[in-house]
Design a binder for these strands. Structure first.
Length: 840
DNA sequence: AGAGGTGGCGCG
DNA sequence: AAAGCGCGCCACCTCT
């Protein structure tokens, strides 16, 4: 007897009649499906339909669950899952399944011992004779329809695996392995004849990426198509691997092969920016890509998992290959090469599919070929060049920041009692906790227990229903300070936040991130956001095999505006820093999308909408509005524009202005905003209708945001999708305009022969940073401004008829943080930089 | 010790 | 009735 209807091993038996429900199905099933709890009838029927549709034979299934008690009131913890596990183990022992489908985090934990379904989904786990395949739970799909495509793809893959089918139409070719000079000669002949190559490299993992002195390329593989015969071939080159014949000559090998690859007409990779950067650094040749499968996949559906392996399983039905590559150098070379080659061969097959799908959607294809591929190539160069870090300033300023932090912390220490005090907080183990002024158990005890400050906000409620911990966020501290006689510790803690953040997030990391040329490098992702914006940070872990914790890289899009920190970055010696920001670009694009007559006319007159809002917020005349007040108008404009309600407006107004609005006043203010810009509400309504009808929206140039959550049963989830439908086309177009501006700028540099004298450093959403040799900086800033403002370019590329003027403001200087904004006249005046003393 | 989840905050 | 959007990183806590 493996079940016990009197079981009391965990809390779930309380409050339910349904204790320890047995599983059911074929006694000798070779497939077991494990849900979180015993399924209800409707849920079971839906699941069966999903599985049948994916091709799973229902007659082969035994249905089981991680938790045997059907109890929706109790929030199951991992401990509950563990307590219930013996029942499931007994079922597995009895049924002896060959394949287990684990649905959701609880089932994942019960069957594999792992936690984190988003990480483990789609990855088969071998356990003895069984293969356990985790995916998300049908409940998660129901709540968020966005999850459905991935869920269906997982089920399909599971069916393929359980049915023992070879993936249809996938027959891996036999590649050539390059082990001798004769092999190399033959490879060169073949590559010179190729019309297409899909390539991939494996590298060791080093903190500074390709610039680290320890950086090595371990192998390079490719799949190519012969121009003369049309046949598909493959090559595998072992490089810096202990078993490789080219171990000591790996760079020289690259210098033989990469220049030939760079001349093949069609050059493809998956997230190829990475490969191109490494190859550029170590062979000296920059391969410009003509297609990138990761970008293509993302453009077709921004919600899908875009790694090569998930794509391989979803699109090709092949099993994930080469998992667990912790240390490629100690793996047998054959395994490394097989894995590396499969990346290129499957990648090539994915390319064929993605290409067809894009051809069927010409607007997306155009964005891909005319915007994103050039951008990818330009960003490859930017990432490789890096941004100069003023190491001298860093050395000066780090101790200043640290001293400031120490000074503040000493002030707080005056309020800390002797640790012998009875109430001193303890951890779970009963040990007294250390003094820690971050948002820790200790700090919360100090403020809210020991010093008796009122708890104004709490974090999320605990899983077991206990209230969340007191919040000591900045906003809460501000409220605590907003009383007649605030406790002095509050202001001190407020001062501390800024310096703590500065030390931990900026001064600390920067000191270990620069290469021998004082350059810091980021990795921009063209596929990092759902709207089309770039994300910036460290290299994607999936590109590197090994200890991901040592991957490093700076996020250039979150450097504080404070010149004390932003001023750590600058133009490299002999060069000038130039930054051009689109002025209020999202508001302009929104005015364009909404056809908002008042906004458009304001912009055509050269007005400033943030200023208009600031005047209304403060009741002052334009000439009396301070820079700070104008800055504070931004969140109000963006908030209302994208659907902020009156409640959040009250919070925003208080945090930014210290102005308290009543509910009625806030509602009236919001109404006044939409009365001023009457076309906005109609536009909101239009976007809502569109997304309800299509479950997707498009930007004016055709970039798509899929919003399947619009069909969620949860009204909050639906409302979220509606707001995203309003925001996405705006954010997406603004971002694509910045990419187009960068591309055009780089083209013009080439035309004017300035490529070696000017470098793009990166994008910060609506800003482009460059550095230019001092003698051409004046020309560079004009070119940059003109390229960004060139809406004829957008018309040529995408047929866009931008009816709102687009303006880019230019700043120049030696450093990022202390560059000075120029007037339009100054930008076009060739004596400006001379007058500013910026010409050497 | 490492991983996941959450809160908080940097940027646009 | 009520509702900003988009990111990445750090620190902490909990759990294994």
């Amino acid at each position: 007897m493996i079940y016990d209807s009197a079981c009391t091993k965990c809390k779930l038996h309380r409050g339910t009649e349904s204790v320890c429900d047995p599983g059911f199905g074929q006694a000798q099933a070779d497939i077991m499906v494990v849900s979180k709890m015993p399924n209800g009838d409707r849920y079971q029927a839906a699941l069966e339909e999903d599985l049948a549709q994916a091709g799973v034979d229902l007659g082969r299934i035994y249905w089981a669950s991680a938790l045997k008690c059907r109890n929706f009131d109790a929030n199951a913890s991992n401990a509950d899952v563990k307590a219930c596990k013996p029942y499931l183990d007994a079922e597995i022992e009895k049924v002896q399944p060959r394949y287990i489908l684990s649905l959701g985090n609880e089932a994942l934990l019960a069957t594999t011992g792992h936690s984190g379904i988003t990480k483990w989904r789609g990855k088969p786990v071998e356990l003895g004779n069984m293969t356990i395949f985790p995916t998300i739970s049908p409940a998660a799909v129901l709540a968020r329809p966005q999850n459905r495509p991935g869920y269906q793809a997982d089920l399909k893959f599971f069916a393929t695996m359980a049915n023992g089918q070879q993936a249809e139409g996938v027959k891996v070719i036999t590649p050539d392995t390059i082990l001798s000079n004769d092999d190399l000669r033959l490879l060169k002949v073949r590559l010179k004849d190729a019309k297409l190559v899909y390539f991939d490299i494996e590298t060791n993992i080093v903190p500074l990426q390709e610039f680290d002195p320890r950086a090595r390329v371990i192998s390079m593989c490719g799949t190519y198509v012969s121009a003369s015969t049309g046949e598909v071939g493959g090559f595998r080159i072992p490089l810096y691997h202990p078993e490789s014949p080219w171990r000591t000559q790996w760079r020289s090998m690259l210098r033989h092969v990469v220049p030939i690859m760079a001349k093949i007409p069609i050059r493809i990779a998956h997230n190829g920016k990475f490969d191109c950067r490494w190859l550029r650094k170590h062979s000296g040749v920059h391969i410009t890509l003509t297609f990138d499968t990761m970008i293509g996949v993302h453009l077709l559906d921004e919600n899908v998992q875009k790694g090569l392996k998930p794509q391989g399983t979803m699109r090709l039905g092949v099993a994930p290959w080469g998992v667990d590559t912790k240390d490629l150098l100690s793996m047998p070379i054959e395994e490394v090469l097989e894995y590396n080659f499969l990346d290129t061969f499957y990648g090539y097959l994915i390319y064929l599919q993605v290409r067809e799908e894009l051809i069927a959607q010409p607007r997306l294809l155009r964005i891909m070929m005319k915007l994103l591929m050039p951008a990818s190539n330009n960003l490859t160069t930017a990432e490789g060049n890096g941004v100069w870090l003023d190491v001298e300033r860093l050395a000066e300023r780090t101790p200043i920041a640290q001293a400031k932090l120490d000074e503040i912390e000493n002030k707080v220490r005056a309020y800390i009692p002797d640790p012998s005090i009875e109430t001193w907080p303890t951890n779970k183990a009963g040990k007294k906790v250390e003094v820690n002024l971050n948002a820790s158990i200790f700090a919360k005890w100090l403020l809210f227990d020991h010093l008796g400050l009122p708890v104004l906000a709490r974090g999320k409620e605990k899983p077991d229903g206990r209230p969340g911990d007191p919040s000591m966020a900045e906003g809460v501290l501000l409220l605590l300070n907003d009383v007649p006689k605030p406790h002095p510790v509050v202001q001190t803690m407020l001062d501390r936040i800024e310096w703590q953040k500065a030390m931990s997030s900026f001064f600390g990391p920067y000191s270990g991130l620069y290469d021998e040329n004082q350059k810091v490098h980021t990795s921009f992702k063209l596929t990092g956001t759902v709207t089309g914006r770039l994300s910036s940070g460290k290299e994607d872990a999936s590109k590197l095999s090994g200890r991901t914790s040592s991957i490093r890289g700076v996020n250039l899009q979150q450097v504080p505006r404070d010149p004390f920190i932003r001023g750590l970055f600058g133009a490299s010696p002999g060069r000038t820093w130039i930054e051009a920001d689109f002025s209020q670009v999202e508001l302009r694009v929104a005015a364009f999308c909404a056809k908002e007559r008042t906004m458009i006319s304001l912009y055509q007159q050269g007005a400033d909408i943030h200023m208009v809002t600031a005047m209304r917020m403060t009741g002052k005349a334009a000439k009396n509005i301070t820079k700070e007040e104008r800055k504070k108008a931004k969140p109000v404009n963006f908030g209302f524009l994208y659907g902020m309600g009156w409640l959040k407006f009250i919070v925003t107004a208080f945090n930014n202005y210290g102005v308290k609005f009543s509910e009625a006043e806030a509602k009236a203010y919001r109404k006044a905003y939409f009365d001023l810009y009457p076309d906005l509400l109609a536009w909101h309504e239009r976007q809502r209708r569109l997304v309800h009808y299509n479950a997707r929206v498009q930007s004016p140039i055709g970039r798509v945001r899929h919003l399947p959550d619009i069909n969620s049963p949860d009204p909050k989830v639906r409302a979220e999708a509606e707001r995203q439908a309003i925001n996405s086309p705006v954010q997406g177009l603004a971002s694509d305009m910045a990419l187009a501006g960068m591309n055009l700028f780089v083209e013009r540099l080439t035309t004017e022969g300035l490529s070696d004298k000017v470098s793009v450093l990166g994008l910060v959403h609506d800003a482009i940073n460059i550095e230019a040799d001092d003698d051409v900086a004046g020309r560079a800033m004009v070119l940059l401004k003109e390229s960004m403002e060139d809406m004829d370019n957008m018309r040529r590329l995408f047929g866009l008829d931008m009816t709102v003027p687009i303006v880019a403001d230019v700043k120049v200087g030696r450093h990022w943080g202390d560059s000075v904004e120029l007037t339009e006249e100054q930008v076009y005046d060739f004596t400006t930089l001379d007058k500013m003393g910026l010409v050497a």
